[in-house]
Design a protein around this nucleic acid. Structure first.
Length: 573
DNA sequence: GCCGTTTTCGGCCCGACTGTTTTCAGTCG
């Protein structure tokens, strides 16, 4: 089954939507194209199959017009309307809309008046002119755009969750010390656990708007971007923007819901509210002119006839439908995790000794811990030779005895998958291990086909239990190697090999979407930290958030099993 | 451009802030 056409068509509709935005078209038409793109992306079958039938079934967000365009695409592999639009708006402009302070309207004016097409053109225009009266840009706007371009070029417009979350928690502590602040909560995409975050949103509860907003500007910052009674935006020294929203106690629940988003989820929620005769905004839930009491977010969802939806699921990716059909997943929580199965010791490139790891795991209340150092091919990571591996196994055997009753120790290895798909250790060695993780650490430049074959070969190996960081990406640093993920998840399900959700915050690999794909195929997931230092154990939360975003339940995970069930799964043959 | 058990037309989420406006457009979330 191939979804290539779904992705292509979705991206065509998305581009049309972008182009219409530049052309200042009807905002609802713009949204209609974007909705159609989202809807096509979330389909479980090929859009071509659906519309090749004489009486195609209804697809959400696709009406008469778009159905015609889909049929045109099926017949000609293109949509002429897009080409028409691209005559009016150069494609190069689309990449520039992420520049802060420079929206589609201004960009299009720049194009019409000054023939601006590329980043270089924009830079030339705004850095060589202190004002552009004919497109209503005077000093302050020009300055903002210049700053936006600098940020854009630094490529720091998004920050990894592993950096943002600890920082956000630190900010909350400071805010709670401000006089008259009753409550402060993280909102926005940080609360939804997205892998990277653009701006940090923080919601503050107080009655004293004036003084609190003023006090917020005393937090360390590089620049004040905006300052009103209900909203303060600061640019921090690391170029991260924090938006503080200030609300009173009565509005807090609705404001928290509203500012947590996502935008798409909220649009759906408001739509449901309207249909039931309510009005929902950041200030409250209203029936006619009467405000309904909402003490917490649960009250809001309940009033709308929905069950409570956790922040990590609020992406309008089917959670509302699932709620209505009583099939919302009960997603895995940090407390469900019974052990970490991917840990490096100082036998390879970890910093902790074996006992240190074990004691840390006991301290964290784990039922089991897997020691999985690198194999021989990972030279740089101090990969273990067969001899050294058996030395380690001996030491672990003694520790198993010493810590009996306190924790179960699994002796294993993170074995390299070689270029030809064979593993670094022979099966005769692997059979002596309690747990085997197979990972790719070299040969990232191979073709999609070769990469997929390598991983599938490892999945099929009767001794391999988990595929480590399956796509190899490092957020902001290294793109994932190309894979046919559908084949991989299907094969993993068939051969009872789990796929890892690596919790290291630059990996988060599998990501949320792939995790959901794996779950749908019936494959097991294993949320590991790939710990190298004591502190790394704390990263588990990032993997759990990613799993939640992928709709992963406790029962989909390997390391939520108790020790006996785990042992059973690990004996795959 | 989509949608509909109040509708086949007229809604579609909408408020805050900024800058350049003196009544509004653009951006953002």
């Amino acid at each position: 089954m191939s979804f290539e056409d779904n992705e292509k068509l979705a991206s065509i509709f998305e581009t049309i939507s972008d182009a219409l935005e530049f052309l200042n078209e009807n905002p609802f038409k713009i949204r209609a194209y974007r909705n159609a793109a989202d809807s096509i992306r979330s389909l479980n079958e090929s859009i071509v199959d659906i519309y090749s039938k004489p009486n195609p079934k209804k697809v959400e967000g696709i009406g008469k017009d778009l159905e015609q365009k889909i049929k045109e695409y099926i017949a000609t592999k293109k949509v002429a309307y897009l080409d028409e639009l691209l005559e009016k708006v150069p494609y190069t402009l689309f990449q520039l809309k992420d520049i802060r302070g420079l929206g589609p309207r201004t960009l299009y004016k720049m194009f019409k008046r000054y023939r601006v097409r590329t980043l270089e053109d924009v830079k030339k225009l705004v850095f060589e002119n202190d004002e552009l009266k004919d497109i209503s840009l005077l000093g302050k706007s020009i300055k903002k755009i210049r700053e936006g371009i600098e940020l854009f070029e630094e490529g720091q417009s998004r920050f990894p969750i592993g950096v943002i979350l600890p920082m956000a928690k630190g900010l909350i502590e400071q805010i709670l010390k401000i006089e008259n602040v009753v409550r402060a909560e993280i909102a926005g995409s940080t609360r939804r656990g997205k892998e990277t975050v653009g701006d940090l949103d923080i919601l503050i509860c107080t009655k004293d708007f004036k003084n609190v907003s003023k006090a917020l500007t005393n937090l360390p910052h590089k620049q004040i971007i905006a300052m009103g009674d209900t909203k303060v935006s600061l640019l921090l020294f690391n170029n991260m923007q924090v938006d503080f929203r200030i609300v009173d106690d009565e509005s807090f629940a609705c404001a928290l819901q509203y500012f947590t988003g996502s935008k798409e989820h909220n649009v759906r929620l408001r739509d449901i509210a309207i249909k039931k005769g309510f009005k929902l905004n950041e200030y409250g839930l209203f029936l006619k002119d009467q405000k309904i009491e909402t003490r917490n977010e649960e009250d809001i969802y309940k009033a709308l006839g929905l069950c409570y939806i956790k922040p990590t699921l609020r992406e309008n990716k089917g959670e509302i439908e699932a709620c209505l059909s009583n099939s919302l997943p009960d997603v895995v929580e940090l407390d469900d995790i019974k052990g970490d199965l991917h840990v490096h010791s100082n036998y390879s490139d970890g910093l902790m000794g074996l006992e240190e790891i074990i004691q840390e795991a006991i301290m964290r209340g784990y039922e089991y811990i897997g020691i999985t150092d690198h194999s021989v091919s990972s030279y740089v990571a101090g990969g273990l030779s067969v001899e050294r591996l058996y030395e380690q196994l001996n030491e672990i055997d003694k520790l198993k005895f010493k810590y009996k009753g306190k924790i179960n120790i699994l002796a294993g290895s993170e074995v390299d998958i070689k270029q030809d798909g064979r593993l670094d250790f022979d099966d005769s060695v692997l059979k002596d291990l309690d747990i085997v993780i197979a990972s790719i650490h070299q040969g990232f430049g191979n073709s999609k086909d070769i990469n997929t074959k390598r991983i599938v070969a490892a999945i099929e190996n009767p001794y391999v239990n988990i595929i480590g960081h399956p796509t190899g990406r490092l957020i902001g640093q290294r793109a994932p190697y190309e894979l046919d993920m559908q084949s991989i998840v299907e094969s993993a399900a068939k051969h009872k090999t789990a796929l890892e959700i690596n919790s290291f915050y630059l990996r988060l690999d599998l990501n949320d979407e792939h995790a959901r794909l794996a779950k749908t195929a019936g494959a097991k997931l294993c949320i590991n930290t790939d710990t190298h230092t004591k502190d790394n154990f704390n990263y588990m939360i990032f993997g759990v958030l990613t799993a939640q975003r992928g709709w992963i339940e406790k029962s989909d995970c390997l390391n939520t099993l108790d020790y006996n069930q785990l042992k059973q799964f690990l004996r795959k043959r």
